[in-house]
Structures are given as structure tokens and as C-alpha cells.
């Protein structure tokens, strides 16, 4: 049994340890846009959501599905951290931005500023921190594959030195064809569980 909250959002699967009512195994694929359908089912009602790129949209939903239900009362926001990792940085937005830039430069030299803002991967961290008020340490790592080592090294330090009391961790890989998000929330207690690494790997890779 896992000792931490987690969620999976990927094309073909939604799973949440705390909100099983949103679980989806991909077999009933009537929805053309499963992310939009999840957003509606969760009744998030957050107008800013529609300004975001897909990396941030799916990340915001992953955070909602992974944070403990009463974390706002249980934790000091300055002691809640967020560490995210992915493969392709913000390429999913770099690409449309550069297209727009190259298409418009001869005429008006004025790409949309809102498109440019999303050409940084850690904007995802910013969006989650705004929505959930996580104000502590934050890092965006890039790795070819989901790599727990630098993340858990950092989190171990932050817990042992008392800088953080809780940390949301995420793999957030979004490209035009696929979403592959895996988020989980750790505390010093759940961190000291000796099967932690195996449990995380089990949940992510199976």
C-alpha cells in the first residue's frame, strides 16, 4: 500500500489515489478531449486555465489530484515545495511560438506575448504555485526519462534540514500527441518509508 498521494494523467489513463471518482481506464473513449472532460468533471472553474498551454493545464489538474485534501490547513505555504521534471522542456510551446514569430515578422513583428510566456518549462511551476499557494522551494529539472535520483536527493536534503515539510513532485511530459503526467506528494514521514523508490517506480512504470 502506498504511503503517499499520487495521480496519473496520461492519454488513455487517469488515476488518483484520493479521488478515485475520476479514474479512467481509457476504454470509454467517447471524449475527444479527455483533459477538457476531466477539467469539467472536476468542476475546477478556474478561468486562467483556458489561457494556459497543455503542459500547464494538465499539470494544474495533476497537482489538484495529488495534493492532500486539507494541505492548506496542515502546512505553512512557505514549507511546501514543488519539483517538476520532463523530457522536452517547453518545446510544445516553443514550436507554435516560433511559427507565429516567423509568420508575422515580415508584417507586424508582433507575436502574441501570451504565447511567449509559455516558452519556459517552469511556467508550469508558476501556474501550480499560483493556484495552490505552494510558496517554498522550486526546481524544474530536464531528463530524457523520469529520473528520481536528483529529485529525491534534493527532497531528502530539504526535509532533513527542515526547509520543507511537504513537497509535490511531478513528471510532466506533454507533446502534441501525448500527455504523460505522474505527480505525487511526499512528507518527511512518507519519505522515510524504505520502499518509497520501488513504490514510485511501480506506480509510474506499470
Amino acid at each position: 500500500m502506498e504511503t503517499f498521494n499520487y495521480s496519473v494523467i496520461k492519454s488513455g489513463m487517469i488515476k488518483s489515489s484520493q479521488y478515485p471518482e475520476f479514474n479512467w481506464d481509457g476504454t470509454t473513449s467517447a471524449d475527444t478531449n479527455f483533459l477538457q472532460s476531466l477539467y469539467e468533471k472536476m468542476k475546477v472553474e478556474y478561468p486562467k486555465y483556458y489561457k494556459m498551454n497543455e503542459l500547464c493545464q494538465s499539470g494544474v489538474l495533476s497537482a489538484l489530484l495529488s495534493l492532500p485534501k486539507n494541505y492548506e490547513v496542515d502546512y505553512d505555504p512557505d514549507k511546501l515545495g514543488l519539483i517538476v521534471q520532463n523530457n522536452s522542456s517547453s518545446l510544445v510551446s516553443d514550436f507554435p511560438y516560433s511559427k507565429e514569430y516567423y509568420c508575422t515578422r515580415e508584417k507586424i513583428y508582433q507575436p502574441k506575448p501570451s504565447l511567449f510566456t509559455y516558452t519556459l518549462p517552469n511556467i508550469l511551476i508558476g501556474e501550480i504555485c499560483i493556484k495552490q499557494k505552494l510558496l517554498g522551494e522550486n526546481f524544474f529539472f530536464i531528463s530524457e526519462e523520469f529520473d528520481l535520483e536528483p529529485i529525491l536527493d534534493e527532497v531528502r536534503f530539504l526535509f532533513e534540514t527542515g526547509v520543507l515539510e511537504g513537497c509535490l513532485i511531478g513528471w510532466a511530459e506533454v507533446n502534441p500527441d501525448n500527455i504523460n503526467n505522474f505527480f505525487f506528494f511526499l512528507t518527511p514521514d512518507s519519505f522515510n518509508n524504505h520502499q518509497l523508490g520501488e513504490q514510485i517506480n511501480q506506480l509510474y512504470f506499470h
Binding site: 523530457n87 522536452s88 522542456s89 518545446l91 516553443d94 519556459l120 518549462p121 517552469n122 511556467i123 511551476i125 522550486n138 526546481f139 524544474f140 529539472f141 530536464i142 531528463s143 530524457e144 529520473d147 535520483e149 536528483p150
Partner: peptide, 27 residues
């Protein structure tokens, strides 16, 4: 070349560092 982890592994190979390089992209 567009992938930051490839840029990092190219540099770490060049300098003969066996550990997997870490990439941070935080504005």
C-alpha cells in the same frame, strides 16, 4: 539539438564526466 538533456550529455561526454548530467531550466 533541441533537447536540453542531449546538450548536457554531449558536454559531459566531451569532458569525460561519467555521472549523468543534471539539467535545470528555471527561467
Amino acid at each position: 539539438e533541441m533537447y536540453l538533456f542531449r546538450l548536457a550529455s554531449k558536454l559531459s561526454t566531451y569532458f569525460g564526466i561519467p555521472h549523468k548530467p543534471i539539467v535545470i531550466s528555471n527561467a
